[in-house]
């Protein structure tokens, strides 16, 4: 089997491979603009300044840039994540009071490995061990909304300030929304069978060597980049088209600051829209360039990434409809407020 021969050599190399790959990564990354210009001007021989040339240049530069950033960050996040698990997060949250619990749950939501397909077992596991509903919600809001893919794309396409604003406001929304849901005492809208589940002992954590953690970091890169690269390509292609062809200030009339209704409207449109961060952020970055306001764009992204229809459908198994609507309402209101705030500040 090719699988065998590969993994035997893989085991020896895996510890040194990052050290080998890092310099190549930095060399390539720091020369990306030069390489792009070389390719566009000399190899393709295109005239600078035309719509087509600038669209192509944007695409050829941004796709490898974002994919390389993703690979690097996901590798390190993948290693860090081997130190966290929902089981440990649950243990940390047990017996915490409402407000402290909300803060911890939202923060741990960023680093704990999470996939929306595991939302149900995670929800059940939290409730089972007596973690309050509101604290559980803080986790469920932060985990999908603030993830490494979103942070890398925001950092790569908007810069560190916007990435930081997104993380901090996302955290505040997750903390406050969870706290509000907790205060409303909505346990009656959780499917009754949930509270009848008996807590089971969770299996022992796997013991991991550092070599193994590095290997898991690589696997995370393979899995996540393998899944999102197509969205990155499509998102940047659309973004490149907007960048090259849409006239300057085109967006300002309907997504600009003066159009106050654009914030709630963006959030409403964003809720049923389902895309991951990789697809939506490049498009929004191009819209901002054409005059869309930062607050409106931020609200739109948060609503698309943080509130998704598929996740609501999954959660319907354990939550009754009124609770799902309350959840969407509270989080949506938070996002709208963030949108207004940033339109006001900037």
């Amino acid at each position: 089997m090719s699988d065998n021969s590969f993994s035997i050599s893989n085991r020896n190399i895996s510890k040194f491979l990052p050290l080998l790959l890092l310099p190549i990564w930095f060399l390539l990354y720091s020369n990306l603009q030069w390489l792009t210009d070389k390719l566009v001007n000399d190899v393709f021989g295109l005239t600078a300044g035309t719509h087509l040339t600038e669209t192509l240049r944007f695409f050829i530069f941004e796709v490898p840039k974002v994919l390389m950033l993703l690979a690097l960050i996901i590798f390190f996040v993948g290693i860090i994540r081997t130190y966290f698990s929902p089981e440990r997060t649950r243990k940390a949250l047990e017996g915490k009071s409402l407000f402290t619990g909300n803060i911890m749950a939202a923060s741990l939501g960023i680093v704990t490995p999470f996939c929306s397909c595991s939302a149900i077992p995670l929800f059940l596991g939290f409730i089972e061990s007596g973690i309050p509903l509101g604290v559980t919600f803080s986790f469920l809001i932060a985990a999908p909304m603030i993830n490494e893919v979103a942070i890398v794309l925001l950092f790569g396409l908007f810069g560190w300030k916007t990435a930081l604003i997104y993380v901090v406001t996302g955290l505040i929304i997750a903390i406050t929304a969870g706290w509000v849901i907790g205060r409303l005492h909505l346990e009656k809208w959780v499917e009754p069978w949930v509270y009848e589940l008996k807590a089971a002992d969770h299996p022992e954590d796997e013991k991991l060597t550092f070599g193994k953690r590095i290997k898991l970091g690589f696997e995370a890169v393979k899995e996540i980049v393998g899944k999102v690269w197509i969205y990155v390509m499509i998102g940047i292609a659309v973004g490149a088209g907007v960048h090259g062809y849409v006239p300057q200030d085109f967006m300002s009339s309907f997504m600009g600051k003066s159009a106050w209704y654009s914030v709630p409207l963006s959030v409403l449109i964003g809720i049923p829209l389902y895309s991951n961060a990789a697809g939506i952020i490049p498009i929004v970055s191009a819209l901002i360039e054409k005059g869309a306001a930062l607050g409106t764009s931020l609200a739109f992204m948060m609503s698309v990434i943080g509130l998704s229809l598929p996740e609501m459908i999954i959660l319907r198994k354990v939550l009754k409809l009124p609770l799902i609507f309350t959840f969407i309402g509270v989080v949506g209101t938070g996002i709208i407020l963030v949108g207004f705030l940033f339109n006001y500040i900037f």
Partner: peptide, 8 residues
């Protein structure tokens, strides 16, 4: 859930 697993 009977197996105590929170991640599938």
């Amino acid at each position: 859930m009977g197996y105590g697993v929170m991640r599938t």
